[in-house]
């Protein structure tokens, strides 16, 4: 019976992908990004941290496809090497906030009452912060390390998952199948865990994909202003920050290529999220 459902979902996905090639491209792009992240040490043409002042600040050429920086390091190698770190930060941050946020939100959305109001208020406080400022303060407070970028990004993502799970559970708590489950002998907690969460998960998966892009931007932004990852570690935000010093003298490649990498990564995850939403939305099913 499950294979039947899986088969139907796969067929449905294939049908959607045919009708929406952009999602297929995005999925392929996300896959390529993950592969690049996994195999980056074997993919880079040059050592990403080896400097050679004789070729400093060279524009893109056959030898250096993306040009070189002020220390003569190959920019393409640095961008490729940075993929792993950027994706790892974003992925772990999003998964962390998803795991915590989904449970908190689901319980609050189902229980309602005072607990829900208190959590709702805390979430409001968190969101009352301009979130990027909050992330800045958190990294500064916890210490300028990569783990803390993950924690800070996870915390600023948390309110969204709590809200989302809360709203999704809230609209379903009055659904007949929830009451039927209780008439069938389930307690409240079991109803949340066995009936509501599984039904909310697909929508949350969409949220994960959309948030990945946002998390990448946040982490890069933090290192751009000098928090978290430190030079000379290759990281997209740092690469842009280093290139910023030379933009007024026309060394465009130092900003454009790391920026392009950032943009493509975020675009892939966003388009994938939009596509997933179409696939999972049961109203769209035939």
């Amino acid at each position: 019976m499950t294979t039947l459902a899986a088969g139907a979902t796969l067929r449905h996905a294939a049908w959607i992908l045919r009708g929406n090639p952009l999602t297929a491209v995005a999925a392929a792009g996300a896959l390529i990004l993950c592969l690049v992240a996994a195999f980056s040490p074997w993919l880079v043409p040059y050592d990403p941290v080896a400097s050679d002042v004789s070729v400093a600040l060279q524009p893109p050429s056959a030898a250096h496809w993306a040009g070189t920086d002020q220390l003569g390091r190959d920019l393409l190698s640095r961008i490729v090497a940075a993929t792993r770190l950027d994706l790892a930060i974003a992925l772990s941050a999003v998964l962390l906030s998803f795991a915590v946020g989904a449970v908190i939100g689901a319980v609050c959305g189902y229980a309602g009452g005072r607990l829900d109001r208190v959590v709702g208020r805390v979430v409001d406080v968190l969101m009352a912060f301009p979130l990027f400022v909050l992330a800045m303060a958190l990294v500064a407070a916890l210490g300028n390390r990569v783990e803390n970028i993950v924690v800070a990004t996870a915390i600023i993502n948390l309110p969204f998952y709590v809200r989302f799970a809360r709203a999704e559970v809230n609209v379903r708590r009055e659904a007949g199948y929830v009451e039927a489950a209780r008439a069938g002998g389930e307690g409240h907690l079991a109803v949340v865990l066995k009936f509501l969460l599984p039904n909310v998960l697909p929508a949350m998966a969409v949220q994960i994909s959309l948030n990945l892009g946002w998390a990448i931007l946040n982490a890069a932004g933090l290192s751009f202003i000098g928090l978290g990852v430190r030079p000379p570690t290759p990281e997209w935000g740092i690469l842009v920050a280093e290139g910023a010093r030379f933009i007024t003298t026309g060394k465009w490649w130092l900003v454009a290529f790391p920026g392009l990498a950032l943009m493509l990564a975020v675009l892939c995850f966003n388009l994938l999220g939009d596509g997933l939403r179409d696939i999972l939305d049961p109203r769209m099913r035939t």
Partner: peptide, 24 residues
């Protein structure tokens, strides 16, 4: 036991008919 009004909403979308009946 109870039978609900809205046949759409009263079945868990992730349960087959068998699972829905077997659950209680």
């Amino acid at each position: 036991q109870i039978v609900f009004q809205d046949p759409d909403g009263s079945l868990n979308p992730r349960f087959s008919a068998f699972d829905s009946i077997a659950h209680p």
